[in-house]
Design a binder for these strands. Sequence first.
RNA 1: CGGGGUGUGGCCUAGCGGCAAGGCACGUGCUUUGGGAGCACGAGAUCGUGGGUUCGAAUCCCACCGCCCCGACCA
Length: 485
Amino acid sequence: MPKEGFVTSITHQSENFPEWYNDVVLKAELADYSPVRGCMIIRPYGYAIWESMQAELDRLIKATGHSNVYFPLFVPKSLLEKEAEHVEGFNPQVAWVTHAGGKALDEWLAIRPTSEAIIADSVKDWIQSYRDLPLLMNLWNNVVRWELRTRLFLRTTEFLWQEAHTFHATEEEAADEVATGLECYRTVAEDWLGIPVIKGRKTDSEKFPGAEYTWTIETMMRDRKALQGGTSHMLGQNFARAAGIEFLDRDNIRKNPYGTSWGFTTRMVGATAMVHGDDSGLVLPPNVAPIQVVIVPIFRKDEEQAAVAEAIDRFCAMLAGTPEGKAVRVKVDWRDDSPGFKYNHWELRGVPFRLEIGPRDVAAGQGMLVKRVDRSKEAVPLDRLAAELPDRLRAYQVELFKRAVDFRAANTHAVDTYQQFKDGLDAEGGFFMAPWCGDAKCERQVNADTGATIRCIPFDSPAETGKCLVCGDSSERRVLFARAY
RNA sequence: CGGGGUGUGGCCUAGCGGCAAGGCACGUGCUUUGGGAGCACGAGAUCGUGGGUUCGAAUCCCACCGCCCCGACCA
C-alpha cells in the first residue's frame, strides 16, 4: 500500500511492478519525461549512476585494446541501405532528416540507429593490408530508434550507449572479439552492477539485423521477467563486403575483413533498479552508488549540534586517512529536515549505508550504522568504522550480487513439457530451461501462445537429449525461455 | 500501431453546467530533530490542446496530443 498523503510514496512491487519502477525512477530523481515523445531527461543522480558504469566499462574496453573514436550522427541513406538485411531490420525504426537549411535534402540522412553502416564506409580507406588489422574502435554516443512503446531507461527513442566496432583479418580472430566484448559486459554487470547474467547465443530470429550471429547477456528482474543486457555481434564479412572493404593478406590475396560490433546502453541503469530495488525504493550496489554512506546528524540543542558536528568531522578525517577510505563517497545531510524524513529520502535513493550520529553516540564514541538492503542496525565505534568501511562496502556489493543470484536460482525451472512450461509461466513466471528442436516455427508458436521468447541458448547448458516442448522432435540441449522486457 | 485507462498549481486529489477547492511540497518567521515534526503568514492554476453546444464550460459533445497499463515490434 502506498502511504497516503505523502508525496514520495511509491507503489509496492507486488501490487504493480511497472508502476513501482516508474515511481522509483521519477521519485528517486533518476530521470524525467521530456517534451519529446519517447525521450527522457536523465537527471543528475541517474546520470551519476550511468557515468559510474560507463567509466568502468570504458576502462575494460581500453584494457582490451580498443580506442575511442567518434563518427557522425547522420548516416546518408545510400550507406544505410548497402547491407540488405541490416536495412530491412532497421528501416521501421529509423528517423530521417529530410529537410535542412530550409530546403529538401537531395539525399535523406538517417539519424543513426547504430553505426555499422557509416563506419564500414568510412574505414574502407584505412584498411589496405593485414598489417592494418585488427582495427579496434569504440564510440560513446547517442542513437535514435523510433520505438512504438517506450519506458524510462529500458526503451527510449533516443538512448546513450557504447558501440564497439572492430575489423579482423580472420574469422577466428573476430569470433574471439565477440567473446571479448561479451566478457566486458559480464564483468560490468556482475562485478559492478551486481547483476548476474546468463551468457548465450541468440536464436536466428532474435539476432542483430546484418549479423551472422549474436551473443547476449540475459538478466532476471525482480518481477522474474528477463532483460537483455549487452549484445555482441559477429558481423562476418557482411558489412565489409557491402562497403567494399578489402585488404591484402599475407598470402597476397585480397580479402574482406571480418567485423564485430557490440553495445551496452543506459538500459542497464533501469536494470540496476529492477534487480535490486525494493518497496522503499532503489537499492544500489556500492560500486555504482553516487553516495555510498550518508551521515544523518541528530541533535536538539546548539551544544549537541556542535558536538555531533565535531564527531562527524573527526570521523570523516579518520576515514580520509587511508587511500581506500578517502575514496568512499560520503555525504553529510545537514538539511533542516527531521531525521525520519532523511531516512526515507536516502532509502528511496538506495544509498547503501546510513550512519546516524546523535548525542548518545557522541558520548559513546560510536554511530548507528544502518544497512539499506535489510535495514539492519548496528552500533559501531567510529574509529573502527572508519577503518572497516571500505571492507563493509565490498561485502555489501558481494551480498547484493549473491542475493540476486539466489533469487534467479529460485525462479529458474527446468521443464520438459509444454504444459509444465505454461503452468509455470502463468503461476509466477521466471526463467524456464526447456528442450527446443531449433526450428523457428516452434519458437514463434511459443511466443504466440504465451508471450515468452527464447532469450538465448546458454553456453553453459550441457548437451542433453530431449524432446522439443512444442513439436516433440529431438532436442540437443535446453534453451532459456522467459517473458522479457 | 490495436485494446483499456488517465490528464485540475511542482505532486496527489475534490469539484462534474453558475466565484477553481483541499492536502503534500515550496517561501518567510518561530518552535523542533533517534523512522516521513508543529504553528503562523505567504506565493503559486492559460483546469492537456483546438474546435463546438450554452446567457455561462474544469464540468457536456467532437477532434487531436501526452502519459500509464495490456498486446504486437524492439537495446
